[in-house]
């Protein structure tokens, strides 16, 4: 499902860093490659801000490591992978997200039943 609309954008904004760290778990990736991985899971970037500033912030915070390497037949690209601190942040973030999601589900389910 493609997340669309304003609410989807707002929800995605709060967890996009987690999503980026999560898709890096598949293996190091450059910017556009991460966009493709997100889209393959139904997360469209349309309406959302770009991932580039976010990747830069993750790098500054030491949550990702980068290196340059040639891409498949293309120019050298900047590859990103989660650092050990990034792995920990991902684990903590996923836990936070699930707790928040469960709480919201409990409220919304109650609303639907009544």
């Amino acid at each position: 499902m493609v997340v669309a609309g304003r609410r989807g954008t707002e929800l995605l904004r709060g967890v996009l860093d987690l999503c980026l760290l999560a898709v890096m778990q598949e293996g190091p990736a450059y910017g556009y490659e991460m966009t493709k991985r997100l889209r393959a899971r139904g997360l469209s970037m349309v309406g959302e801000g770009s991932i580039y500033p976010l990747l830069a912030r993750l790098e500054r915070d030491g949550l990702v490591e980068t290196y340059r390497a040639a891409s498949n037949g293309g120019p050298p690209r900047k590859y990103y992978r989660a650092s050990p601190a990034g792995q920990s942040a991902l684990a903590a973030g996923v836990s936070d997200w699930r707790a928040a999601r469960d709480s919201v589900d409990a409220v919304l389910d109650m609303e639907v039943k009544s």
Partner: peptide, 22 residues
């Protein structure tokens, strides 16, 4: 980096908006 990503997106038939968002 940006140029290479946009070139690749264009080759894939993906709009710049899909890469850059708003």
């Amino acid at each position: 980096d940006l140029d290479a990503d946009l070139d690749e997106a264009q080759a894939d038939g993906v709009a710049a908006e899909e890469v850059l968002g708003s």
